[in-house]
């Protein structure tokens, strides 16, 4: 459960806010919920590693919005999402909660799968552009070696 939940929470957090909104709108009527923690904006420190692999150092912060809510049926949804979009965090937490209900298949089909596909597509497009800039450098033979 936690491995699967980790994946869907990541998909929700990294979705473009407009794309998540459009996808959630296709779910139809949404259940009522109460807030356990209203959406709030804060910072998360991101460390790097010396030499990429060594001991950690602090690189800088990112803005993050978090919230937690409880559906009328009792399931609890959490969201920690990059940025300052409170509505985005609310939708992410709602989907996280819905994934623990009988509507999980709907959420998977209408929200998670299309969002994951959109992300993969965007990545592929950048990777394809990067691949087009791959070069072969040739070392020129110097006069003294000829």
């Amino acid at each position: 459960m936690s491995e699967e939940r980790k994946t869907w929470m990541g998909t929700l957090a990294t979705a473009k806010p407009a794309a998540l909104k459009a996808a959630v709108d296709t779910l139809g009527a949404l259940p009522g919920f109460s807030w356990l923690r209203r959406p709030e904006v804060g910072g998360v420190m991101v460390p790097g590693r010396m030499g990429g692999t060594g001991a950690a150092f602090n690189l800088g912060e990112i803005t993050v919005t978090r919230c937690a809510l409880k559906l009328e049926s009792g399931e609890v949804g959490h969201a920690y999402v990059q940025g300052r979009d409170k509505a985005h965090a609310e939708r992410a937490a709602l989907c996280d909660a819905l994934m623990q209900t009988g509507r999980a298949d709907d959420v998977r089909r209408l929200v998670l799968t299309p969002l994951a596909a959109a992300r993969a597509e965007a990545r592929k497009a950048r990777a394809a552009r990067a691949a087009a800039t791959k070069v072969e450098f040739f070392t020129m033979v110097r006069g003294e070696d000829a």
Partner: peptide
Amino acid sequence: YRTTLPRFGSAEPVETGEMACDR
């Protein structure tokens, strides 16, 4: 602005070896 933000915590160190490289 940064000083007004509550600190939610610290992330895991980023893994630059797994970067999706543009360059």
